[in-house]
Amino acid sequence: MIKIGVLALQGAVREHIQSVEACGAHAIAIKHKEELKDVDGLILPGGESTTMRRLIDKYDFMDALKEFAREGKPMFGTCAGLILLAKNLVGYREPHLGVMDVTVERNSFGRQVDSFEADLAIKGVASDFPAVFIRAPHIVEAGENVEILAKHDGRIVAAREGQFLGCSFHPELTEDHRFTAYFVKMVKEAKQKQFV
């Protein structure tokens, strides 16, 4: 069975673990960088990106995460996780991991009172996916190799670039596991390729 890690420095870790397990894969909470060696794919969960970044630096996770990306292993960032993956952040000089070719703007739908739920059409996943947006970011610009999977109000809210998957919303907060299943499939395919 494939193993998927959930970066467990802060945020909605339990929900992602439940969602991955509901998709028939094994899920592990990753608190130390050494544990990255044990997993085939990694989810960067929602939470506060500034907090996660402090803890990533403090515990020397940055190089290990970049190495994980270099090995071609799939990574899935939701909300704050998307911010961590992006190559460019509006209003910031430096990205965090900077591995996915997208420009992301933080809190771009407004404050908490503007947070919302909406049904989304996600390419290859669902035509009616219940998406929960919480102080959500969005993708302002996507590189040429990035496949746009979903838009809301004309804004890109889900995209894939090869091994990287990112979305503005929180698939882990609903009982609908179809988007997580899409990532689990990406991880399975990447692992099969390794052994060919």
Partner: peptide
């Protein structure tokens, strides 16, 4: 829709471990 239970409770879920 704004202000649903999922959106309001979800906001607190994102603060977990913090």
């Amino acid at each position: 829709v704004t202000g649903t239970d999922r959106v309001k409770r979800g906001m607190a879920e994102m603060q977990k471990g913090g």
